[in-house]
Design a protein around this nucleic acid. Structure first.
Length: 299
DNA sequence: GTTCGATGAAGAT
DNA sequence: TCTTCCTCGAACA
């Protein structure tokens, strides 16, 4: 489920279980054989994320860069010390929908430090003394020099999860008449917001997604940026996207893992709005992406 | 501005 | 077997 929170969870997980260790790298599928050979045997020094990009710096001075695209996912496995190293509960999978089964206890057996034979679709396999990670379905998987890393990150807007200065976003969004719903999805404007956070943050702000971005003013844009930071942080903490305020989740505690009403408008077209109660949540297309909004609450 | 591939897997038909 | 999906960049008009 690659919006920004997933990539930051992934970076945290990789740092936890592989940081400071020498890794074997291979490409069972074959399409990343050259890149894997460049990294094989090196120490993973630091894993980090910017927007929807994942990076891992290796001791030889090169950096692994992965973009999960629409379907990419990492899966993890290992022995007890590998699981214990994880601050997010050694999920079986990061990058797609993090269903409850992803953190259930059908985990590795205590002696499972030897990885199973890889699936034919595994683009990259990383193996340490205690566990492994398999990458499938990524749209980008490459090895970059430091200069190339800078080129990639320079094209991305500030990432609310990295405490970046929001000024570049405020400046650029404050000048364009492109719809705010398009601007929030533009990774050059702000990093990490995808279709769900776009729809949900605009609902929470009561903003019509079709409004020109500049019409929101600096304060409106800043509030939207800050709310996305809050929502993304909650996503990192919970491992899923929960955007409803507690008063709109009746009978549910603040941090219950799987609340019934986790979102206000995303994929709720035709259902009653959790705030106004009207059947006015609609789905339409915006720049060839699905857009969800409440026709009553967002003006 | 739009359309079209391209990465896999899961769920519906 | 078909459709869908939390994506992006290239190729178009």
């Amino acid at each position: 489920m690659p919006e920004g929170h997933s990539l930051h969870r992934l970076a945290r997980q990789v740092q936890d279980v592989f940081g400071g260790q020498a890794l074997r790298a291979s490409s069972p599928q074959g399409r990343f054989a050259d890149g894997a050979a460049l990294l094989d045997g090196q120490v993973l020094e630091r894993a980090w994320a910017h927007g929807k990009h994942f990076f891992a710096d290796f001791s030889g001075g090169l950096t692994l860069n992965v973009h999960l695209g629409l379907y990419g996912a990492f899966s993890f496995g290992g022995d007890e010390s590998f699981a214990a190293a994880s601050s997010i509960g050694a999920p079986r999978r990061i990058g797609e929908r993090e269903l409850p089964s992803a953190v259930d206890d059908d985990g590795p057996s205590p002696s499972a430090a030897v990885p199973p034979p890889p699936a034919a679709t595994v683009r990259l396999r990383l193996v340490s003394a205690h566990g492994w990670a398999d990458l499938i379905g990524a749209s980008t998987c490459r090895v970059l020099t430091p200069a190339e890393v800078l080129q990639v990150t320079a094209k991305l807007g500030p990432d609310p999860l990295n405490d970046d200065d929001p000024a570049p976003f405020l400046l650029r969004a404050g000048k364009t008449r492109r719809p705010i719903g398009v601007v929030l999805m533009d990774q050059a404007m702000v990093g990490g917001i995808g279709n769900i956070y776009r729809a949900e943050s605009l609902f929470r702000a009561g903003v019509d997604p079709w409004r020109p971005a500049k019409d929101l003013g600096e304060e409106g844009l800043r509030a939207l940026y800050e709310d996305n930071r809050r929502l993304l942080r909650a996503g990192v903490r919970l491992g899923r996207i929960v955007t409803t305020r507690q008063e709109h989740r009746p009978g549910v505690t603040a941090e219950q893992a799987w609340p019934e009403h986790a979102n206000y408008v995303y994929q709720r077209q035709g259902q009653p709005c959790l705030v106004c109660g009207e059947d006015e949540i609609v789905a339409e297309d915006m720049a060839s992406r699905r857009l969800y909004r409440c026709m009553v609450c967002q003006t």
